[in-house]
Amino acid sequence: MANKRPPFWQREKYTPYLLLLPAILTILFVVLLPLIFSLYTSFTGYRLIRPETLWQWVGLRNYQRIFNDGDFWVAFGRTILFLTIALNLEFLLGLGIALLINKITWGQRTLRTIMMFPMMFSPILVGYQFKFVFNDNIGILNNALQALGLSDGAIPWLVDEFLANFAIIFAEVWMSTSVFAILLLAGLFAMPRDPLEAAKVDGCNSWQVFRHITLPFLMPFVFIAMTIRSLDVARAYDIVDVMTGGGPAGRTELLWTLIARTGYDNARMGQANAMAYVSILLSIAFTYYFFTKLLAARKYMGGAE
């Protein structure tokens, strides 16, 4: 009796695992298994409408196809371009808004709340909203331009390649600039006053104070926002799908509208999953890049007062 060991689930060593078991199981079934399954299907000729193709192993064929698929690489490039433009615009606008709000002495709270409104709408609704703003016949933009006599014809906002991409970026920026604005405002609130004053005494004018002291202090906040937003934009789907559906003729196709079309409309799930895995590399690359930057920028923020 004295030396009898308790059954293993009662041993102290296993308690943490036992307690974590529900979480581990959930992650296993909800995340890991689907992930493995989708990875597996990317090596098959799986078509949604023909379940038996799930067992049709094709090796790397789906991946080989991607490398010869011009449409995919155009969408890939367009996504990177889209991401670069949207992130930079949002950064500049967000910084401007944060600096202005930081200056005012009353109504700050209200403005901060108002600023968050665009984030509260579902992207789908933002998409519809801008679809109607930019619509060439009934859109308020064209109507307004015509009423003001600034344009006589209907400008094809969502049809022309350049204008359509511009319209989508506009919607994206409208919805998400506040992410930057709010994070940068938090950074400005946390900014110590002394180095700013020291810089003024050291001979800086306002621009130099901003350039040499404020901006470096804000950089970690910028990189956090960039990380969040690059993940967001790299998987952009809803706004594009609602506004243009990736068209016309693929002129606004981004990675995920292309993947969704391949997987659901064309039912080629195996191929779509292969594309998705290649696309994820993009997100990983951006996240890694901004994260390294963040760590570098944070290093000196440590204990210095």
Partner: peptide
């Protein structure tokens, strides 16, 4: 301040952390 040609040492040092 920048036109006054003075230097100031602050209680919390106020060094530029970066």
């Amino acid at each position: 301040p920048r036109k006054r040609n003075i230097s100031m040492v602050f209680q919390n040092y106020a060094l530029y952390p970066h």
